[in-house]
Simulated scan of single mutants.
Amino acid sequence: PAQSEQGQSGTNECGTGTNQTSQCQNVYINSVTDFCLWAPPDPTFQGVPSTIGETERIEVAWCIRSGYGTRLIPNGAITGAHFVQTPDYVQVTGVGDMTQLNIPAGDEGGELDPHGADGNGNPIGGLVFGSSFGALQQYHEWTNFMDYQSFCFRACKDAPEAPLFCNHVYDLLGCDWNMPGNYDAGTFENCVGDSTEPMGIYVNGGTTSTFSQGDPTTPDAHPAGSSSDCSQLPTISNAAA
């Protein structure tokens, strides 16, 4: 269908070209040279700068690869990116100049996910796809943090544990806490790794506890799952899919 949720600002029927004014709301995550991010469609929204908080309902897809009918991430905007596939999810973390994706300088950003306050998603109708676990599939659980100089995106394999590994309730705690990983500039790599323990869930002496955002004390983030079998590239650039 052209749209998957009522009130959607963009479209899920995106074609196969590329267009810097595209309203496509389909994201793909497959590798460090084939991933997308959510970001604002315009530099301003209703007369104010397009912070993630102001535009979370209307973000559009910006991708490294063409061929998805989306906008392209400008070459040079991503200055470091790290893709890892684990048994439970795929994840890309990195840094760059996200002002080239219409995020205002200084915006500390926010979190996008398929639920939102009303269940329609942030952005409304935004869909995420990938083929890391076999045939192309839709990921029904995912979470993406964006700010003006960094990003992290995790999409979880459909499974009973997917809502835990892609938990979206810790929206004030950012990338480093929710998605520990490599955020180094100047490095571009694909890795295979172990899954990091689900955010907010802690096991101590056989007892499991769940942290709630707003509790008096915020626990440390889990250590990132170990990575292996990494292959590095000198850089990445937008190219045909």
Score class of each variant (00 low, 15 high):
176 D>Y: 13
213 Q>S: 13
75 N>H: 04
194 D>S: 12
150 S>H: 11
153 F>V: 01
161 E>V: 15
117 A>T: 11
50 S>C: 06
117 A>S: 13
30 N>A: 12
4 S>C: 03
34 D>W: 08
156 C>G: 15
226 S>T: 13
77 A>I: 07
111 E>V: 12
65 R>Y: 00
236 I>D: 04
218 T>I: 15
95 V>G: 00
86 T>N: 09
174 G>Q: 09
219 P>I: 11
120 N>Y: 03
202 Y>G: 10
178 N>Q: 12
125 G>H: 06
28 Y>Q: 13
4 S>A: 15
222 H>K: 09
39 A>K: 03
64 I>C: 03
187 T>E: 11
72 L>Y: 03
95 V>K: 09
33 T>W: 02
8 Q>G: 05
102 N>I: 01
83 F>N: 06
118 D>T: 12
164 L>Y: 12
157 K>E: 08
178 N>V: 02
146 M>W: 02
139 Y>T: 12
208 T>D: 05
63 C>S: 12
183 Y>K: 04
145 F>L: 04
99 T>C: 10
175 C>A: 11
238 N>V: 01
49 P>V: 07
66 S>E: 06
113 D>Q: 10
173 L>I: 04
163 P>T: 11
117 A>L: 06
152 C>P: 04
183 Y>V: 03
176 D>S: 10
45 F>W: 14
167 N>C: 06
158 D>Q: 15
115 H>E: 06
215 D>L: 06
185 A>T: 07
191 C>E: 07
181 G>R: 01
53 G>C: 01
14 C>A: 08
42 D>I: 00
149 Q>H: 15
106 G>A: 14
207 T>C: 00
40 P>A: 01
135 A>I: 07
23 Q>N: 14
185 A>Y: 01
168 H>R: 08
221 A>W: 05
147 D>Y: 02
167 N>M: 02
120 N>S: 14
99 T>K: 07
60 V>W: 04
233 L>W: 05
3 Q>I: 10
203 V>G: 00
23 Q>Y: 00
169 V>L: 02
86 T>S: 15
126 G>F: 05
99 T>A: 09
239 A>T: 14
34 D>P: 05
130 G>M: 14
153 F>A: 01
22 S>T: 08
15 G>R: 04
12 N>I: 15
97 D>L: 08
225 G>K: 09
207 T>Y: 04
136 L>K: 14
236 I>F: 06
95 V>I: 09
69 G>D: 07
114 P>M: 09
37 L>Y: 06
52 I>P: 03
162 A>E: 12
155 A>N: 13
37 L>W: 06
96 G>F: 08
57 R>L: 13
142 W>I: 02
110 G>E: 03
177 W>V: 05
132 S>L: 03
86 T>R: 12
227 S>Q: 14
143 T>F: 02
15 G>L: 00
206 G>H: 03
62 W>I: 05
46 Q>T: 07
181 G>P: 06
15 G>Y: 01
231 S>N: 14
144 N>G: 01
137 Q>V: 15
170 Y>C: 07
35 F>V: 10
131 S>D: 15
2 A>R: 08
81 A>K: 02
86 T>I: 08
205 G>F: 07
115 H>L: 11
70 T>M: 02
7 G>N: 08
26 N>I: 14
82 H>W: 03
113 D>H: 15
213 Q>R: 06
94 G>K: 05
68 Y>D: 03
40 P>D: 09
158 D>G: 02
21 T>R: 02
49 P>M: 13
164 L>S: 14
122 N>A: 01
115 H>T: 10
224 A>C: 01
120 N>W: 00
181 G>E: 05
121 G>Y: 06
